[in-house]
Design a protein around this nucleic acid. Structure first.
Length: 497
DNA sequence: CTAGGGTTAG
């Protein structure tokens, strides 16, 4: 709670500074002044109404030093004050959630003969960034193929309605949410319009914005246009990266768009930009994924020639490649090269290597590096255990996988969705269907929410084994939880194959 | 702190 409050406070303050500066720069444009004055007024009110509770949090720290052994009463007052603020904040959260639920209900009634706008007005709810966020997320969560047009309409109606409220301005986050809603319905024109609007109003366009756009376009031609627009954009906030190319390359890397990475790199060179370590690492990884290992190696050489020695990420990629090629000896050599370069191999390196080796089918090497990792004082975490469990299952050694699973508990590591899904898959492959179903129950009772993939894994294995009844029971349980009903088709489709 | 590791999928 405290840390959230502090972040909020800093955020508000930084916007404050930002407003002050921009106002003095743009003092000729009336539109800007009005816009910022509105934001500023809102912020002043916000600080008043929130009673500057965040400030008192900070003061508390200083005062606790000053007031050691002096005024106990003062501390009590502070404490009371603090509790009051915690109470205010949680009731604000609760009220906002209720208001959002009411707004969603009103929106659902929208249709001919129903004026949603005035119905929303009649609710007399306080519009805040949190409220708009709650409502838009509520819409986004329920969106599916069948209702998406209506969802877009309702979402946009609410976006416009809330944006017109006095003392409220949309945030970058609410823009992103409405863009995501449009993206679900492939309303690209509307997305571009919103992007222009953000830029006009001086909102920072971030890599999140880029991500929403790039994920929404299937065609390569459109994707290139998106990239071009963001590279050229003056309002693109590419921090923490050095320039927009690296920010874009990193986003593309995260969504595994390797072809586009090659293209962006060409644009970057044409633009006269020099690649740095980050650029090289991403390009090299893309080359590897595209199966162009010769280019990978020439880039690696080029990188060294240009004064960029391999860093921990570079070594991570190298280890992965040697693992996949089933060259454990090379991996050993590189591990010691890393150490010579002053880079200690950590869990991520070992996990990565073990995963790659398991894909190459070398179970002995997997075990060797797992033990080496522990020996070197590197504690395996959930991912490392999951990768080992997966390796054993891939090698058909289910008992070993189970052993790992219980070792994991002994070492105090809590399995997550990946782990459970891997175990359920393993149990199915071993023909232990009752256990697989029990494992699903277990993960639920341990508070680990099964995702769609978990259900899909279990159901498809059950169906393929002719256990239709059990499969339907699992589906029933899934639908009862009410989250993945709209994805049912995907399981059925699987059945027909 | 702020680039890195995982459910084989078409």
């Amino acid at each position: 709670m405290l840390s959230i409050a502090q972040i909020d406070h800093r955020f508000v303050q930084s916007i404050f500074c930002f407003c002050g500066i921009s106002r003095s720069i743009c003092s000729t444009s009336n539109g800007f002044i009005d816009g910022f004055q509105r934001i500023e007024k809102y912020l002043i009110d916000y600080r008043k109404s929130s009673n500057c509770d965040t400030v008192s949090d900070e003061n508390q720290e200083e005062e606790s030093v000053d007031s050691v052994g002096t005024s106990g009463r003062y501390e009590e007052e502070e404490e009371e004050h603090h509790q009051q603020n915690v109470f205010n904040r949680s009731s604000f959260l609760r009220n906002t959630k209720n208001a959002a639920a009411m707004a969603l209900k009103v929106l659902q009634q929208d249709g001919p003969g129903f004026d949603a706008r005035s119905a929303l007005d009649n609710l007399e709810i306080q519009v805040s960034g949190l409220l708009v966020r709650e409502v838009l997320i509520g819409i986004l969560k329920n969106i599916n193929q069948a209702n998406r047009e209506r969802c877009v309409k309702l979402g946009y109606k609410f976006f416009i309605w809330s944006g017109q409220k006095q003392d409220y301005n949309h945030t970058v986050n609410t823009y992103h949410l409405i863009m995501q809603i449009f993206a679900e319905s492939q309303e690209y024109k509307a997305m571009w319009r919103l992007l222009d609007e953000m830029t006009e109003k001086g909102y920072p366009v971030t890599s999140r914005t880029f991500n929403i756009f790039i994920c929404s376009c299937g065609e390569a031609g459109i994707a290139k246009k998106v990239v071009e627009r963001f590279i050229k954009s003056n309002s693109f906030n590419f921090r923490p990266f050095k320039h927009s190319f690296n920010a874009i390359l990193h986003s593309l890397h995260a969504i595994k768009h390797y072809n586009l990475i090659e293209w962006v790199y060409q644009q970057m060179l044409a633009d006269g930009r020099q690649p740095d370590t980050l650029t090289y690492n991403i390009i090299m990884y893309a080359k590897y994924r595209l199966g162009r290992l010769d280019q990978f190696h020439s880039l690696f050489d080029e990188m060294g020639r240009n004064g960029f020695p391999p860093d921990l990420h570079t070594f991570n990629i190298l280890l992965h490649i040697y693992g996949r090629a089933n060259k454990p000896a090379e991996a050993v050599v590189h591990l010691s090269m890393m150490k010579e370069a002053g880079i200690e191999p950590n869990v991520l390196h070992f996990t990565n290597l073990i995963d790659a080796l398991s894909r190459a089918g070398n179970m002995d090497a997997c075990k060797y590096f797992f033990d080496l990792m522990v020996e070197q004082g590197c504690e395996p975490d959930v991912v490392a255990y999951t990768v080992m469990i997966n390796a054993h299952i891939a090698g058909g050694q289910f008992e070993k996988a189970e052993e790992m699973f219980s070792d994991m508990f002994d070492n105090g590591k809590i399995p997550n969705v990946y782990t459970y899904n891997t175990m359920i898959r393993g149990l199915c492959m071993a023909g232990k269907f009752e256990y697989a179903c029990l494992m699903l129950k277990e993960m639920e009772s341990r508070g680990c929410n099964p995702n769609f993939l978990v259900y899909k894994t279990l159901v498809s294995f059950l169906k393929n084994a002719g256990k239709v009844f059990e499969a339907n029971e699992v589906i029933k349980g899934m639908v009862e939880k009410g989250q993945y009903g709209h994805l049912l088709k995907r399981i059925k489709k699987y059945k027909r194959c």
